[in-house]
């Protein structure tokens, strides 16, 4: 696990203010041991999640992205997480066409009371990302993208 056995990877977490951010806080107050790879961005609601946030993070060098909000039926704004669920599920299924491993993105629900669940989620997701290793970079300094590369041709139709 990072901070202990190997070097840290970059994981971005988008957390709902009302549930998962509280859940992460609960886990912290309870002094549950957690990996430190996650960088948290607080959102008012997962309904605020634009799938582009995830894509921007993944193309920008994140090795994994975690979105967590209130359980269904528990949204502070009643339907934000229902809307988010559809968008995020579509996004999860979209990633493979970009050549991005879909395991690098997860969305889930953690309530403010579920400190232990938060610990489990973060630990499991961080482990997955460490198994996958660093994500391939779009802007790789070793890469010469302007050099001819033999590649599969997919023609415009």
């Amino acid at each position: 696990m990072s901070g202990m056995a190997c070097s840290e990877l970059k994981i971005i977490g988008f957390l709902c203010n009302w549930c998962s951010y509280g859940g992460a806080d609960t886990a912290g107050v309870a002094r549950f041991r957690q990996p430190t790879d996650l960088r948290i961005i607080r959102l008012p609601c997962t309904g605020r999640m634009d799938p582009l946030f995830v894509l921007k993070a993944l193309l920008g060098g994140a090795d994994g992205v975690l979105v967590s909000g209130c359980h269904p039926f528990d949204c502070h704004y009643s339907s934000g997480n229902f809307m988010a669920r559809r968008r995020l599920e579509v996004l999860a299924r979209f990633l493979p066409v970009l050549g991005i491993d879909p395991r690098r993105f997860v969305y889930t629900w953690v309530s403010a009371a579920e400190g232990a669940k938060w610990q489990a989620v973060v630990t499991a997701f961080t482990e997955t990302i460490h198994e996958l290793g660093p994500a391939p970079r779009v802007l790789d300094p070793d890469d010469a993208p302007l050099r001819f590369k033999e590649g599969r041709e997919i023609w415009p139709t």
Binding site: P96, G99, I100, G151, I154
Partner: peptide, 19 residues
């Protein structure tokens, strides 16, 4: 065409888009 593309390994798809 999408099926043919998705039959490629992930890394190849990523490199394809980069190119």
């Amino acid at each position: 065409r999408l099926d043919a593309f998705e039959a490629l390994p992930l890394e190849e798809r990523f490199d394809f888009w980069k190119r």
